[in-house]
Simulated assay, not measured.
Amino acid sequence: MNVSCDTLSGCPGRYCGRLSNGDGMCQSLCRACPLGHQITTLNDICTPCNQDADLRDYMFFVFMVLLTLSGHLVILAVEAIKGLKTRLSIIITACSCIMECIIAAILTLLLFEPYGDVVIKSCGAKQVSDFYPIFYNPIPDFVHELNCVSEVVHPLYSFVFVFLGFSLLFLVLFRGVASYLMRWCFRKKLINRASIFYSLIWIPFVVLFHAIFAGLIYFSFDYLSLIAGTIVFAIISVVAQKETEESSYHHDEVKFKFAFKLWKNPLYLSFGVMCTLFTMTGILSLTDEIDSNTLRLQLLPVAITPFVTFPLLSTFANPDHYLTAWGSRPRGYNGPLS
């Protein structure tokens, strides 16, 4: 039944609305808003989301892409540590992981309105509960529940699932074809099937993680990006330094040798780039409220701070200097104390 929108009162619940015919007439029945609509009026009328997605929405999507890619690289690193992969296999698999995520991300953005454009429309998210409308269905008569479940934050919830679906498809396609071609060209198995199997498990895990914690992630991913980028880079730097422990600890002229090792090893290089991208994502999302693009560009160099500070400060973290000062012998040193 259609009545004048001005004569209607608000709908029960937080996410129930009415559909408008566009001529000042609305349906009297309260229900869930259609996909791509949100409640913006006092009469709880569902209106289309015509605003372009803001920077934070894009950075949230980039964060989920980087999270997915990071899982693939961690699996690749574990396989490399076990000695199950050659250098060529690592490079091929790492390139495949990157291409899978990039192509999946681009196709995902092109599939949302406006179709064929990476600039998408977004309803935005104002609070964590916007991601979980299923928990806010009203019960007007205290007996029957009024179903008002819809994607209130469209497409912030759904485009991650679409991306992960494409990632799963391209994982099977790219790595399956790459594994076959490498075995046909080099007459040996270069891509270990275990890494493909673990990656097939990783993507459903990310799907479950996003389905449950999407709201919490959206309002905290900027801080998580900064923390993750710094900690992961510290870990890979320590690992790289440990591999050059003798030279970096006992020869000051090569104390930066491990820093060059970060760029020589394809896994270390990939993780270093990932840490930088995570940090940039956090910085850009935190500066979403700033209107000055110049200030954003001035803050981006902060993302490379770990690359500069860790080599400079690593010498002070050498325990051998303090052991010598306290009268103890450094590790592996049997000579006289200076």
Rank of each mutant, 00 (worst) to 15 (best):
F219P: 01
S158W: 04
I39K: 15
I81E: 15
I203S: 09
R175T: 01
I235P: 00
M25A: 07
V308W: 15
H250G: 08
T68A: 07
K85D: 13
F258T: 06
G282C: 06
I236G: 06
F307S: 00
F307A: 01
T230E: 10
L168C: 01
V153E: 09
V74R: 12
V65H: 03
I304E: 00
V128G: 10
R329S: 09
A94K: 04
I106W: 13
S70V: 06
G332C: 06
L226N: 03
T86L: 03
Y58D: 05
F142K: 12
R31I: 06
S314D: 08
P266A: 06
R183A: 04
I196E: 15
L73D: 04
G335T: 07
F112P: 00
F260Q: 08
M280H: 03
G22H: 05
M99Q: 12
T68R: 05
A194E: 12
L171A: 11
E245M: 01
L109A: 08
G229E: 02
L164A: 07
N147I: 10
P12C: 10
T309I: 05
K264E: 15
M99G: 02
C95V: 09
N43L: 10
S292R: 10
G327S: 01
R187K: 14
Q38R: 15
H210T: 10
C123Y: 09
V302C: 13
M274W: 05
A94T: 04
L19S: 01
A125R: 09
V3W: 14
V239A: 14
W263S: 15
M25R: 00
N137K: 09
G282E: 00
M59Q: 13
L269I: 07
Y115C: 05
S89F: 04
D252V: 14
L313Q: 12
I45C: 08
Y58I: 14
F60H: 08
I102A: 14
S285V: 04
G332N: 13
S28A: 12
G10H: 13
R14A: 04
